[in-house]
Design a protein around this nucleic acid. Structure first.
Lengths: 346, 346
DNA sequence: TGCGATGCTGGAAGCGCTTCCATAACAATG
DNA sequence: CATTGTTATGGAAGCGCTTCCAGCATCGCA
């Protein structure tokens, strides 16, 4: 498509220095006189030179690649807002770190998903991998990945926190906080639609919820818990079931915004007024929570920052600046919107 | 992190053949006896060898990289469902083609966005680039990109169709079809909230809309048109304005699902019943259209397939199998859901 | 039986970089 | 002024592949 591109040797010749010196300049290395440095940069500009990343990777023995792995089928719609937010955050930090991001979606229901993740790392020579839930909760996978490259986990459960660096919010506290919010509004009859069983951070939210209920002097066992899977559909199904019960809950806490949107949709279908007849809350504060009607009360998670922090943890580790696995807790907060209100209001 | 990985020479030694032969086997080249081929594959497996992609790129002089470029700020929420669907489709096809995808988000409001896109292609040695709207509508950018690598456009307007391969639906027909749907329900007072001005395919939808209106014997000029920008927010603002008019439209056609969600949200806020008092339609059929209440009538676009087709067009072109720029039209269809109905119904 | 055509194979030369190491220039020390 | 460091610099050896090309069997056909 075009003429031969200039190489480092062209730059060296053009600026009258050795190839090694050019390399030093390009990599901000030491021991180059300022005037030489300037001369080299001038040649780079005048030749419109840019380093060949492939050659650099080969020579330096490091690919610069960081994989971001999602558990989602190619054919199903992934939890787009969640995934996009993480991807954007990771992308931005990779730019800063001069690394490349390799986004990958692994069908979580395929029998060999672990192998697929590990193969990706192996064949692409990834130097780091960011695992998202529920992959970040799987000790086997995390251990195997750690043997191959630097690993950072998004919202890992306690079972994997000791195995690799991680970032996330305090899920238990998040669950506690939404529950307190609802209890404070006067709700006494709560239900929780969980995420996938394998996704332990959704389970931690439940623990927090129970703690809040107990702190109110209520029986934690009175909270109905239904096993969802983070999808809109599971919100629909479980909400239908809940509202068909003899004494339906006055508030449904959902493990994420998608599920809450499903719950909301059922309420609309039954002509229930939200929040007057039913309060519904989500989790994550994805844009979806402002798109549905009424806007969702939810727990904000700084997803982009989390992904960025994961990438920079990997970068630090590759630079040898870390010792033991470290978990970084980012702040969450309850965002009260219109989907929650006092129970039994007119 | 681990011992030296086996190289092609290790495989050659292990299977007792020359390095060249191994390379031939790995690349499915001709002129290798079946028994030798088997022997080499056996060695590959037993050594757990995998090609070093960096070395391969350098030696073959081709990076295998295809860039997927979106116009969106890192800090703003992109149109996630739209972007995710395209990314997934591109990702899958890249897997098939043995290429790598480089997703990139360029702030469309930065002054040098064109340069940014071209720099990405240049510095990363991309062999192909998939441009999404509104980048796919910019003749300058498309021309410049074509000079550097293979280009495929998502939903290009007529102004860029001749410049590079493209895929998309027939936007004009899509606009025509939703409009016919609404006219068929009895609506006579329509409004259209467009996408960004720079996004010409949204303008084509308007042309179709006008054609439908005219075919009904109405004055195309009677259709109110407001200049949105594809965001939820613009749906909110313009719908507020429209509903504040003396004779508000009975149906609002939005340039995409996000905008329609915004319109829906205003209707809810005003306690307007949708579709009885106001019909609202979207475009794209992203999952969002099933998440909002009531579910959106919208025009389905096969986004994943479009992205896949774009990648494979690039692959064909790189293989030298193409001649002139070709535009591939994929089928669209109106998905009638509950957000549209006869006007003025009880 | 002879001889060009064809099939199979491997040696060797790169691809464009980083990095080890030797060398040169110069400053600092006794 | 000789000696030891320190700072700059470039030569050369790879990194792990692909690919050109030469070499040798083998084959078909006259």
């Amino acid at each position: 498509m075009q003429a031969r591109r200039p190489t480092i040797d062209d730059v060296a010749r053009h600026s009258g220095v050795g190839r090694t010196t050019v390399s030093r300049v390009l990599n901000d290395g030491p021991n180059v006189r300022p005037e030489v440095r300037d001369r080299v940069w001038a040649s780079v500009r005048s030749l419109n030179y840019s380093v060949n990343p492939q050659a650099r990777s080969l020579a330096s023995g490091s690919s610069g690649l960081i994989a971001l792995v999602f558990a989602s089928d190619f054919d199903a719609q992934p939890n787009s807002f969640y995934a996009s937010a993480l991807e954007l955050g990771a992308l931005r930090e990779c730019l800063v770190q001069g690394r490349h991001l390799l986004t990958h979606h692994v069908p979580q229901h395929s029998p060999d998903w672990k192998r697929q993740v590990l193969e990706l790392i192996r064949t692409q020579r990834c130097q780091g991998v960011v695992l998202t839930p529920p992959f970040s909760d799987d000790p086997d996978l995390v251990k195997a990945a750690t043997a191959q490259c630097a690993v950072a986990l998004i919202s890992p459960s306690p079972s994997t926190r000791g195995l690799a660096d991680g970032v996330g919010v305090d899920d238990e506290a998040g669950g506690y906080d939404v529950a307190r919010h609802l209890l404070g509004l006067g709700h006494r009859n709560l239900a929780y639609i969980t995420g996938l069983e394998s996704h332990l951070s959704a389970a931690r939210r439940l623990e927090g919820l129970r703690r809040a209920v107990k702190s109110q002097g209520l029986d934690p066992a009175s909270v109905r818990v239904l096993g969802g899977d983070f999808t809109f559909r599971s919100g629909v199904e479980h909400t239908r079931r809940l509202l068909g019960e003899r004494s339906p809950p006055t508030a449904i806490i959902c493990a994420n915004d998608d599920t809450a949107a499903g719950a909301l949709s059922v309420a609309h279908g039954l002509h229930l007024s939200v929040p007057d007849e039913l309060s519904i809350t989500g989790f994550d504060d994805t844009p979806m929570s402002e798109i549905v009607w009424p806007p969702l009360t939810t727990v904000h998670q700084p997803l982009k920052d989390m992904a960025g922090a994961a990438v920079s943890a990997i970068a630090r580790r590759l630079a040898g600046e870390e010792d033991g696995p470290r978990f970084e807790t980012l702040p969450h907060r309850v965002i009260a919107r219109e989907s929650s209100g006092p129970p039994g209001a007119p």
